[in-house]
């Protein structure tokens, strides 16, 4: 039932390179590939919502002139089944000849920076082995997390946050197409809150519009309060204020009811720790425990038990502080 709702980010995702918003430099280079019907392996790097996947999909679309099916696959490097599955899928995919005038197929591999170095080494060999029939578009948020040998085999494209006016224009365009009224102030607020992340901006707009059928300052505030990652912040907050049981209950809710991946929870707790009013020594202690927790969870440790122990540590720190003061 939920899925019947069309998500605007998908509905208004540019199909062709010529429809892309901003990103002129990148589009120009990608269009050259289309013209010459050739391209190297590509590596798209940049923060979320900066058109990486859209560019990759649009490039594929233009490259095959809309005749995309069977000519490309999208894989996710961080998928739990790991690099072996990717390798076998690549192998299978690369075996057949592409349809159309282009002599290669394209593999879009997302979240490359969330894999281990080992997995990246394996990926590198896979890329080499099949490069005569397939080209890779690797997508990552951070370049430093990609090993050198992969970087050196790819043409690197850097995607920066979108300028405010580009997002504002895009929001207005979508609102007009959707026939939804908006307050100028509300859109500006969305732009400000989304920090150059186009996807976030469009999601905010759609959420806000769902409330009263119009994008108003109030509806924007309402939606932003609802969405986001505030729930994980609560886990930290509760532990920080010493209410360990409540923190663990909230954690369980996130893990088992909301189905939030443990890795994301750990990531958010990390952000919270860095901003919290711990002393440097305490921060160092908690962060090294956090690193351990992340390692353990990735090695198959139980997320609830491991994160609970971390929360217990956080929950007793402030009291320790108080004791020192008195």
């Amino acid at each position: 039932m939920m899925e019947t709702e069309q998500v605007w980010t998908e509905k208004y995702r540019p199909r062709r390179l010529s429809e892309m918003v901003d990103r002129e430099e990148i589009v120009k280079r990608l269009e050259t590939f289309v013209k010459t019907k050739n391209m190297p392996h590509l590596l798209f790097v940049g923060p979320p919502g900066t058109s990486k996947t859209t560019s990759a999909l649009a490039l594929v679309y233009d490259m095959y002139n809309g005749n995309v099916s069977g000519n490309y696959i999208e894989l996710n490097a961080s998928d739990e089944r790991g690099i072996d599955v990717i390798r076998s899928r690549v192998k299978e995919f690369a075996r057949s000849v592409p349809l159309g005038e282009v002599p290669f197929k394209i593999i879009i591999l997302d979240e490359c920076d969330s894999t281990t170095e080992e997995a990246q080494q394996a990926l590198r060999r896979t890329m080499e082995r099949y490069s005569n029939t397939t080209r890779f578009i690797l997508i990552a948020n951070e370049l430093y997390k990609i090993i050198e040998p992969i970087q050196s085999r790819c043409a690197v494209f850097r995607f920066s946050p979108l300028p405010d006016n580009a997002i504002l224009e895009r929001l207005k365009e979508i609102a007009t197409k959707e026939n939804i009224k908006y307050e100028e102030e509300a859109l500006k607020m969305i732009v400000e809150k989304s920090e150059g992340d186009m996807r976030k901006a469009i999601n905010f707009a759609q959420g806000a519009a769902a409330i009263e059928g119009a994008i108003t300052v109030k509806s924007v505030k309402d939606f932003i309060g609802y969405a986001g990652i505030g729930k994980i912040d609560q886990v930290f907050e509760k532990a920080f204020h010493g209410d360990l049981e409540a923190a663990i209950n909230t954690l369980n809710n996130l893990l088992y009811n909301e189905g939030i991946p443990p890795r994301e929870i750990i990531r958010e707790i990390h952000k919270n720790i860095m901003q919290a009013s711990f002393s440097s020594q305490e921060k160092a202690d908690v962060v090294s425990m956090l690193a351990d927790v992340e390692y353990r969870v990735r090695s198959g440790g139980d997320p609830e038990i491991q994160i609970s122990a971390l929360l217990a540590k956080i929950s007793m720190l402030p009291s320790e502080k108080r004791r020192k003061q008195s």
């Binding site: 939920m2 998500v7 999601n203 959420g207 969405a227």
Partner: peptide, 10 residues
């Protein structure tokens, strides 16, 4: 997890 699902639920 953080954007699409909350949006759809909302």
């Amino acid at each position: 997890v953080f954007e699409t699902l909350p949006l759809l639920n909302f």
